[in-house]
């Protein structure tokens, strides 16, 4: 697993060079934006069921047959597995967002996920739909961290404006979608 810092280190080691002033500019920016990243991760962690469970429920509401006998979310054991998976995917997205690097999501969550779903007969189309809803909800919550009814005080004390990092969070969900598709 890598984060933004160790990603730079691994790149420099491949060249056998030190990390000098030229390489540090982007990392300094990363440090300057640390509060935004931390507050955005916190925003996800405080809205877990609002993002994950609602996304899975929403996906089921669009396909009511799923909870009927013969559907993929029948009986409740399979619905529970679906809810759990939504939360797991969201958890790895939150790690990736905190690290500033997708490797934790790739290595520990997405690697082999599509093959597992195919083997278990999970309908990929519906899984992708649930991830899409999670993406929309996450972007909305992160964008809204510093205003409106969901405003909250981030770890930085006065609440960072996390709007700028919403696109990065969305890119991790896109990564999940493209690896499943």
């Amino acid at each position: 697993m890598l984060d933004a810092f160790s990603r730079a280190v691994v790149g420099a080691d491949a060249k056998g060079a030190c990390l000098g002033s030229a390489d540090l500019a982007s990392l300094r920016q990363h440090v300057a934006d640390a509060n935004i990243r931390i507050d955005a991760t916190n925003a996800i962690a405080q809205h877990i069921s609002c993002i994950a469970a609602d996304a899975v429920s929403g996906m089921v509401c669009e396909n009511t047959g799923m909870t009927q006998p013969g559907g993929n979310c029948y009986p409740t054991r399979r619905m529970a597995a679906c809810l759990r998976d939504g939360e797991i995917i969201l958890r790895y997205v939150s790690y990736a967002l905190l690290a500033g690097d997708a490797s934790v999501l790739d290595d520990r969550c997405l690697n082999g996920l599509k093959e597992t779903y195919d083997a278990l007969g999970v309908p990929i189309k519906n899984a992708v739909r649930a991830v899409e809803i999670m993406k929309a909800a996450t972007v909305a919550i992160i964008t809204d961290t510093n205003s409106g009814p969901s405003a909250f005080q981030g770890i930085s004390g006065n609440g960072s404006d996390c709007q700028g990092i919403a696109a990065e969070a969305a890119s991790y969900f896109d990564r999940v979608i493209s690896s499943l598709s």
Binding site: M1, T41, I44, L90, R91, Y95, L98, V104, I155
Partner: peptide, 22 residues
């Protein structure tokens, strides 16, 4: 690669929890 951030994430992942306040 172990770094300050990946150490924290590895511990959270081992416990299966989202990054908490600590």
């Amino acid at each position: 690669m172990k770094s300050a951030v990946t150490t924290v994430i590895t511990a959270a992942d081992a416990a299966g929890r989202f990054p908490d306040i600590s």
